[in-house]
Amino acid sequence: MSLDTNQVLAIADLARLQIDEKSITDFQTNLSNVLDLVDQLQAVDTNGVEPMAHPMDAVQRLRADVVTEVNQREKFQKIAPSTADGHYLVPKVVE
């Protein structure tokens, strides 16, 4: 399966990646190769094989419902680009 330019741009947009026009063909080839691999996997007969949600044959361990974290806001906000009034600041996002 091969992707066209618009599909590549749509995927980049969803991933919030900016790609320059020169590299579109490269991405097109690489992503298409990935999909070819998936096609190959799809072709395998999996009748009678139970689907796996995880490659490890193990079960989720559970945590007790206990508060173990303390407030470390100051530390975290020291490495944030911009904060005010305890909030992390980002460019205005209103829908």
Partner: peptide, 23 residues
């Protein structure tokens, strides 16, 4: 619950901004 679904931070309502947002 007392703590979050995937972390040990408190879920209490009304705390100061980001005082219950941990690593």
């Amino acid at each position: 619950t007392k703590s979050k679904i995937f972390s040990g931070s408190s879920t209490e309502y009304g705390a100061d901004a980001n005082t219950q947002a941990n690593i």
